[in-house]
Design a protein around this nucleic acid. Sequence first.
DNA 1: GCCTCGGGATAGAGCGCTCTCCCCGGCCGC
DNA 2: GCGGCCGGGGAGAGCGCTCTATCCCGAGGC
Lengths: 346, 346
Amino acid sequence: MSRQAPTLEDVARVAGVSRATVSRVINGVRNVDPGIQESVRQAIERTGYAPNRAARSLVTRRTQTVALIVSGAGDTPGEEQNAFTARVFADPFFGRVVSGVVGYLRPRSMHPLLMFAESAETRSQVLADLRQGSADGALVVSTHADDPLPALLADAGVPAVLFARPSRPVRLSYVDLAHREGARLAAEHLLNRGCRRIVTVTGPLGVAASQDRLAGFRDTMARRGHPYVPVAEGGFTLDSGMAAMSGLLSEHPDVDGVFAANDLMAQGVCQILRERGRQVPDDVAVVGFDDSSVAVTCRPPLTTVRQPVEEMAAAMAALLDEHIRGVRTEPTSLIFDPELVVRASA
Amino acid sequence: MSRQAPTLEDVARVAGVSRATVSRVINGVRNVDPGIQESVRQAIERTGYAPNRAARSLVTRRTQTVALIVSGAGDTPGEEQNAFTARVFADPFFGRVVSGVVGYLRPRSMHPLLMFAESAETRSQVLADLRQGSADGALVVSTHADDPLPALLADAGVPAVLFARPSRPVRLSYVDLAHREGARLAAEHLLNRGCRRIVTVTGPLGVAASQDRLAGFRDTMARRGHPYVPVAEGGFTLDSGMAAMSGLLSEHPDVDGVFAANDLMAQGVCQILRERGRQVPDDVAVVGFDDSSVAVTCRPPLTTVRQPVEEMAAAMAALLDEHIRGVRTEPTSLIFDPELVVRASA
DNA sequence: GCCTCGGGATAGAGCGCTCTCCCCGGCCGC
DNA sequence: GCGGCCGGGGAGAGCGCTCTATCCCGAGGC
């Protein structure tokens, strides 16, 4: 980078062959005489040649890069960008997504390009970047239900794959969890444990996942002879979990089992229960969802429903890769099965 | 992206001007007749033109992209890539770094390209990518003290800025915290509170930051008449904090104040204290470091030393930008001051 | 012995942009 | 009135790579 970088031409001159031959050796295309192959390799070594990504991208129309977009709601005018990015990254969930994505991309020498779209302005910025070919495609993790980005991407013809089913249908592939199935596991665990007065703290009901978890939970409870389950809506945060449990406890002081739609809220539930003098799990059993890091640090450690987030994220990247390569043209969906992780809280 | 994307040429034809003029309008270079400017804008609108990033990069030799590299130790052969990325992202600290970096980059329409270098192999991969011009420069966050990457980058002539002072000197700019000053704040807070039998749980002593925090802490204690401070080394994790505190408590059952070198370990300290029947902060006061999200979710909420991580990360990005633009050629360092955040634990 | 065939290498035409040079015409100074 | 200057625009040469079309040459077929 300091002195003028060597080009294909330079290598060709040193090796005594043409540019095209060097290119073929580098890309492993067609039969090249082994002897020449070797001398080209040595020339590359000697010159310290590194192919220029931009030049290659210009002709191949590939950047070897995919956008990893964290997309917020419509317009949360109160919240500014820093708060948004901070909040997103504070959630260990997103870290697992990145981990899974990188797991797929890296062996293929691709990289994720981080983008945020939490306002109308940044959303159109992201869209413009993609149309300019900053990345070959997009992986979208929406934090809100009515995210307009997926539809915009589909319209722009940008290859994209979503994490979680969008609330409004859109012609894009997505990966998701069998949320109802996860809720069923939670319900059955509580029932098998002997709980009979069970309540649930849901996620924000605008989110499809929250609805599915609630529906799956109710369904299983009903099948097992519990047609009525008290419900309080939370917002996936610690505070909202505390508030929700606080209300439920006042109305149902004899509760002996709680299903919270994520671990953070489950932690809030545990705190309220302790404050109100209930022992977890002896007086009240608590089951969370996600198996995030708080499930382990929480006292007591949470029994929870594990999402295979890394696998899901890797599959999302794989799907996008197929769309980019044109191997797959029609959108599809991949649904993953959750797993119950039993710890101390239930 | 679906049909053949319009090029500068197309826009020029529609507007009835030359390619160069359109380019000038887009880049705001030189004076262009306002009337022509307007008609070019309309032509861009009509054609739905978006400049091609690769073509532009090829000639400007800029990608508008910087690599954000999370760099591990030498070779942790036991740990594989997924575990590494998962661990990194589980740490809320990294989220704050990303947040700060994005805060600087976005208004300049640049993006971070995420890379991981935790093994010799991935390290050379990252180096190769950078030499190919995948990014204009690199922001490096090392998780270990003896990270060889910074030196490699410096040798390769890649513009780079480090988060935290490298253990071996290298000709690269970095941002860092006044760790000794932070430790001083913690020590004085504990002493002013009346604590007299104070112990500390350090970070891994191979890391410069851990050493500095310990040195600063000891220093202040000594100045205030406490020449001896029991020390246990931790690994910045919850478990290591618990183990360290467990040992310290056995040897010094009368302890009344603890300084932990990060919040995660402070949380572990609190848990052990509670298990052994000590009240925090009444029996033992606990001070953490970082002001990460666990400082808030911990019971009791942690008194801690706040690093202005977002500001530091933004400054790191700004510094890199200066190096890339050639405005700054000599490496420099920027040291930030910590701040004591008083909550319930001390 | 001539023609065909095909493996192996080359020449050169772009990919879509930027930017340097150059041109044109009007305005100023002398 | 003429040359120089300057604002505004165009032509065209690359940037470094890929890839198609083409060429060369030795081997095989009749």
